[in-house]
Amino acid sequence: MDIHADKKQEILRLIEERKRAEDIIEVDEKRIQLVIFSLAGELYGFFGKYVKGIVSVETIAPVPGAPDYILGLTNVRGDIEAALDLKVIIDLPQSFPDRKSRLIITRVKNVSCGMLADRVEEVASIPESQIIATGTSKTVNPLVAGKTSYDGNDVVVLDIPKIFKHYLNFPGQ
């Protein structure tokens, strides 16, 4: 009887241990979807929850009077979206879109906007622990949400809501 009770206790202890280990694995495996793209040869990322779609770049109609970071309006599957030049926003040299360029359609609340990227590398699932928040230091670009790595290269994760707030006068934060 005692032997049986001991065995039962041991089994229950092992089950509990296994459960804890599974919990730890689950925490470790929490992953974040990241749209990784390149701009002027460097890698950048957007959190997937702010990305509505990725499309080829069609003709972009300029809007007179718009600031230089607004490329204009474009036809996205029969709808009209604004297109922004991310290079102007993060102070990189501008270039013309080519066949590899993509418009990443981002959305914060009900406002959407296309962000021009030189090319989209991958939509990756990255362990949350591998995305390092950059904090609020004055030396860090306020539009950067964090950093991670992809294929051994650094990826700067950009903060879409902050881009909307700083560049689009978006009130709905």
Binding site: G65, A66, I80, C113, L168
Partner: peptide, 13 residues
């Protein structure tokens, strides 16, 4: 007809 995207509306126009 399409609405002008809100992004453009917020800026001006």
């Amino acid at each position: 007809l399409y609405e002008i995207p809100q992004v453009i509306k917020y800026l001006r126009v």
